[in-house]
Amino acid sequence: MQSYIIRRLLYFIPTLILISVISFAIIQAPPGDFVTTLAVQMEARGDQVDEDLINALRARYGLGKPLWQQYLIWIGNILQGDLGVSMAYNQPVSRIIMDRLPWSLLFSFSAFIIVYSIGFPIGFLSAVRQYSILDYVLTFTGFIGLATPNFLLALVLLWVYFEATGQALVGIFSVEYAVASWSFGKFFDLLNHLWIPALIIGTAGTAGLIRIVRANLLDELKKLYVTTARAKGVSEIRLILKYPVRLAINPVISNIGYVLPALISGEVITSIVIGLPTIGPVLLRALQTEDMFLAGSIVLILSVLTLVGTLVSDLLLAVIDPRIRHGV
């Protein structure tokens, strides 16, 4: 167990370095350095270009130095909480991310809960009732969920919501709560605005999970150890929960790490349609406007989160599966 954890943590570090290098490469990708771009933009707006400020920025980010030194300076700045400056927003990247990321995490987490609390039981039912009408209905619904584009689903649900309540479902608060301070009313308003986007963001993931759970469980149900348990006189429901479900859970847990990036990339379109203050649309816009510090930082943060997700799921696996613990 210990050696497994140590090994797993040791893999974590080089991957982290690799990711930071890739993010740095993204930042460096456009021609010219960003300070020059900034100066050009300021001129174009007719602002006075402050030579002192330009030079200060150049020094701070080590521009003009060899790339590897710039990289180290960039890393050093990040460790002090300085992610650079967004040209499009004319704000520190860290502030934009701090504004947006919590919302993203909130929506992703809600979607995650929806994915697992709907996907797992449905996949389970589908498998233990294989080829029943229930199975066909659930599998068919799952495929529709997988095949429906998020924007379409968002538009349809927005329309349904509007027809049902007479209110437009835009943003994360209704007008009356948008600037109000926190209260129960505001909290429920948030919940009300949360579940529909979370459902939309989670549909594809839910459909995917249904298929994974169904396939794994069907595989496990055929295994001999299930017959052994049956031959001991264990009741069907107890037996299924104790053995095949326990083993079918493994691939589901190892999947957790990959759910997060899928949710965040799936969130972009939904957020644009519904007008959510999340990070997805910002990333899209940053890439379109070559706002590279912003884009690179978002990619870096999302990658690190994913990496942490896979680490957590791997450690969870070791906890529940003795074969991994004992290195079999």
């Binding site: 150890y225 052994t228 049956r230 031959a231 006189g233 326990r246």
Partner: peptide
């Protein structure tokens, strides 16, 4: 699935299978 049937299984008639590896759950 009846209780009566399950009482016979293991309790009256017990079974040994071909693949001792596959016949045990690996995680219990």
């Amino acid at each position: 699935r009846s209780r009566e049937m399950r009482k016979l299984r293991g309790g009256e008639i017990a079974m040994i299978f071909q693949e001792p590896m596959a016949s045990f759950s690996p995680v219990h």
